[in-house]
């Protein structure tokens, strides 16, 4: 289990909101801290993977349970 410094609820919002919310939440973290994102948009996996890579962040892990997608992103 990865320890997260902040949890973002991006469930029940559609594109482009998960990525816009994640960006805002990430701004409040320091480098090395981990943001946990919960989303229900099925495109979120591809979106967050691409976004994290472009921004120099690291997608540590992702999972899906009860149709909620969870991501752990370490700020670069």
């Amino acid at each position: 289990m990865i320890e997260s410094d902040k949890v973002l609820d991006a469930t029940n919002v559609a594109c482009p909101m998960p990525i816009v919310k994640t960006k805002k939440a990430m701004q409040e973290l320091n480098s090395g801290e981990v943001l946990e994102v919960h989303a229900t948009d099925q495109g979120a996996k591809s979106d967050l993977t691409a976004w994290a890579k472009s921004g120099g962040h690291e997608l540590l892990e992702d999972s899906e349970e009860d149709q909620i997608l969870k991501f752990w992103i370490k700020k670069g």
Partner: peptide, 11 residues
């Protein structure tokens, strides 16, 4: 506007 907001989220 979706593309614009997405791009803004990409800084």
């Amino acid at each position: 506007y979706i593309i614009a907001n997405g791009a803004a989220a990409y800084d």
